[in-house]
Amino acid sequence: MTRVVCPGSFDPVTNGHLDIITRASFLFDEVVVVVLVNESKKGLFDTEERIDLIRRSMRQRPNVTVDSYAGLLVDYCAQNDVSAIVKGLRAVSDFDYELQMAQMNGNLTGVDTVFIPTAPDYMFIASSLVKEVARHGGDVADLVPTPVLAALDAKFGH
C-alpha cells in the first residue's frame, strides 16, 4: 500500500488545497493530510478546528485521513511508513522553495516529494489572502469549502 502525506498549516483549508488532496487520492492508496503544528505561530483556527474542517470537507474521499504533527515532517514520515510527500505548486516561486525543501527531506531520510501543479482555477488562492478578505467581509464562498465558509463567518461575526 502506498501511503503519502499532504502537509501544511491549512489555516484554513482552501479549495486549492482540496484540489491537490483529491487528485493525490486518485494516485495513491492512502493520503494523510498532516496539519503541521508551529507552536510559535498563532493561527486563526487551532489545530483541532483545522483537522475538523479538513475531515468535514473530505468526507467523500475514504482514502484520505487527517492527522497533526509538531516536529520535522520527515520524522512523521519515518514513524508512519509514509512513502512520499505530496506538495501542490501554484507558481515558479513555490517551486524554488519546495524544491529546496524536497532536497533537504530527501537528504535527511530518503523520502521523495511528488509535486502536483495546482489547477489554474486555484492558482491565486492562499489561506492568508482568504483570511484577509473574509476578515473585511469580502466574499470567499468560491475559494473555500462550505464548512470553512461557515467557520470564517463565525470567527469574524458575519
Rank of each mutant, 00 (worst) to 15 (best):
S83K: 14
D94Y: 04
D94T: 01
F95M: 10
Q103N: 10
N105I: 05
V86H: 00
M101E: 08
M101L: 14
A102Y: 03
A91N: 15
A91F: 04
S93K: 08
M101R: 05
R90G: 08
E98D: 03
L99K: 09
F95C: 11
L89F: 01
V92C: 08
A91T: 09
N105A: 03
A91Q: 08
Y97D: 04
A78G: 12
A78D: 14
N80I: 04
R90L: 07
N107K: 15
D81I: 06
E98N: 03
A78C: 11
N107H: 11
V92Y: 13
D94P: 05
G88K: 01
N105P: 01
E98Q: 02
I85L: 02
A102E: 02
D81S: 12
G88M: 00
L89H: 09
Q103L: 11
M101I: 13
L99P: 11
V86G: 00
N107A: 12
Q100V: 10
A102V: 03
Q100L: 14
A78S: 15
Q79K: 15
Q79V: 12
K87Y: 10
Q103D: 11
E98M: 04
A84S: 10
N107E: 13
V92E: 08
K87P: 02
V92P: 12
R90V: 05
M104D: 12
Y97T: 06
N105M: 10
L108D: 01
L99Q: 11
M101D: 14
G106N: 06
A78T: 12
A84W: 05
G88S: 01
L99G: 06
Q100N: 13
M104W: 06
A84M: 07
R90Q: 07
D96S: 07
A102N: 03
N107T: 15
S83T: 14
L108M: 02
L89I: 10
Q100G: 10
G88W: 00
V86F: 00
S83Q: 13
M104A: 07
V92G: 08
A78R: 15
I85F: 03
S93N: 11
V82H: 06
A84Y: 01
V82A: 12
A91H: 15
A91K: 12
I85G: 00
F95N: 08
M104L: 11
Y97H: 07
S83P: 13
M101Q: 13
N107F: 12
Q100D: 07
V82T: 09
D94H: 01
G106C: 04
A102L: 01
